[in-house]
Design a protein around this nucleic acid. Sequence first.
DNA 1: GGATGTGAATGCATTCACAGCA
DNA 2: TGCTGTGAATGCATTCACATCC
Lengths: 227, 227
Amino acid sequence: MKAESIPPPAVYRLSFYLRQLEIFQRFNRHTISSKQLGEALGYTDAQVRKDLACFGQFGHPGIGYRVAELIAQLKKLMGTDKIHNVLLVGVGNLGRALLTYKGFLQQGFRLIAAFDNDPAKINRRFGELQIRPLDELPQAVAEQHIQMAILAVPAQFAQAAADQLVAAGIRGILNFAPLSLAVPPHVFVQRVDLALQMEQLSFHLSLANLKIPAPASPPEIHTIPRP
Amino acid sequence: MKAESIPPPAVYRLSFYLRQLEIFQRFNRHTISSKQLGEALGYTDAQVRKDLACFGQFGHPGIGYRVAELIAQLKKLMGTDKIHNVLLVGVGNLGRALLTYKGFLQQGFRLIAAFDNDPAKINRRFGELQIRPLDELPQAVAEQHIQMAILAVPAQFAQAAADQLVAAGIRGILNFAPLSLAVPPHVFVQRVDLALQMEQLSFHLSLANLKIPAPASPPEIHTIPRP
DNA sequence: GGATGTGAATGCATTCACAGCA
DNA sequence: TGCTGTGAATGCATTCACATCC
């Protein structure tokens, strides 16, 4: 399949494949079949092959996929073969936790600046970073070549902060505020709504209680048998 | 449409509708059309109507949907018309931030117990809660009628912790560890992988750089024009 | 007029099934 | 034999378009 037509759900699965491959690699697996990779994540083997085929021919007939090789290819595809600089806006409880979250750096994302508008926080240090006022955003974005931001401010300030991020030249935003941001088309927003995720749990538990069979799992959801 | 066939993506959208309706309500909107609700979230009007029609007839021809009424209906559907007790396992940086996160309670989820296996943390207090050892899980689950858990332990302990949650009777898990949990079919896992979300941003930024048109947005993604 | 709800039509995503290669 | 890559077939999800009602 050519790169022109990528099913949007496949882009998510690509990330899941990459995580799972890294896990297999930690267990010293050198090769893996589409069947094994799929089973670990709750997908069919055909799904795995089709998804990967969107981007090239990574497999070896009779053998499967070489784990290290496929990891390298996927990282390149996702743009995580190089480290990205990321800034944070909003140093509340959640923001502070994200500042010290190890998982970001493990996947190639380095938090190198933190901003807040609360005068009580400005110039304080959390982790390795000193909190700066939001009007220093454009300067930081330009000097440190930052393309992505994490937005962890309260909902009522989120749109204004997003506007400042966009004005400063940010092109990707991970939005933790529970609302849809309005941004120009060249800016990409990824919304992470924690309470919404809980609500999804709640819905599926209610369904189970009513003994109505649950709908098939969307990509984000995994209830799989033990490998 | 009957309740038998619910497209899985629709279940996500239901939560987005609910959030957006609550926002409209804060602005004192009393009624809303499928077109307006859809536009706020980047969906078509037909999509909104079809999704809602899976669960009943909530609209009023010529009028639209009454905001308060639809909120009540959706909350009932999602099971968030009542407060749910939730427990937390793993009181690291992320866990502590989640303990004090206001958004959960706003949507009807109350964190009422926190667990960790680090002896240095046990019996310490964070927020209103005292940290307890994991072997008290079954007791807490039974006594406080807890069905859902937030799992925020490091990846290498996540499966073991999940096993304990399942054994204790938990039926829904919000999993922050970057791996697929193996659980029995009656347990529902919602995976939240923060680095994976960043990776999705990275991918779409790479696409934009290559000047290949981006695939249409999956439900979680919103880049919409200003209302 | 203005809006919903819904069968019919369209368009995608997934799965099947098999040719081809190691 | 074992596994990939891929056209063809299937099955869903979305959109269209219109009857219906306020």
